[in-house]
């Protein structure tokens, strides 16, 4: 009968294609992807935190990070200087945001770009630094 029956060969081919794509999916998903450069960004963030944690303060306290996190008043006094200093420390192709217990300093963090992050503990709370490429 000339009924519209799908040829066995074509059905076999369809099954074969499914198998082939199954194997391919394994390759594509299982192979580790190239990291999006966060190793370098994390290193930048860590270095910036280390440098800040080692710098003498402008007025009081043991280090600059300590001074910034000491109280709300000292944060408000130091935020502009902190922003200038971190701008100077980081290479020109980086932007940053610093979160202290009393508020944030720096630029708005964009979505969907690789970001390096470091968290350092201070006597008055945690300070987080994010950096990303411009």
């Amino acid at each position: 009968m000339g009924r519209a029956q799908l040829s066995t060969t074509v059905v076999e081919a369809a099954v074969g294609i499914l198998l082939i794509f199954a194997v391919t999916t394994g390759f594509v998903l299982a192979v580790p992807h190239a990291t999006d450069g966060t190793t370098q960004l994390d290193a930048y963030a860590r270095d910036a935190a280390t440098v800040l944690a080692n710098e003498p303060p402008r007025h009081h306290g043991a280090t600059r990070l300590d001074e910034v996190t000491a109280s709300n008043a000292s944060f408000v006094r130091e935020r502009a200087a902190l922003r200038r200093r971190v701008d100077r420390i980081l290479p020109d192709n980086l932007l940053f945001r610093i979160r202290t217990p009393y508020g944030d300093v720096g630029y708005a963090r964009p979505a969907g770009v690789p970001v390096g992050v470091v968290r350092v503990a201070t006597a008055h709370g945690e300070v987080t630094i994010w950096v990303w490429y411009v």
Binding site: S7, T8, T9, V10, E12, A13, G16, I17, I20, F21, V23, T24, F27, V28, V31, P32, H33, A34
Partner: peptide, 30 residues
């Protein structure tokens, strides 16, 4: 059946080619 076989072979080899290209890309990225 003969044209069906030709079509099936064509489709399968295309699929193999595409798969190889995808897998190669994944390895190159890694």
């Amino acid at each position: 059946n003969l044209p069906a076989l030709v079509v099936a072979l064509l489709v399968v080899s295309t699929a193999i080619g595409m798969s190889l290209a995808l897998a190669d890309g994944a390895f190159a990225g890694a």
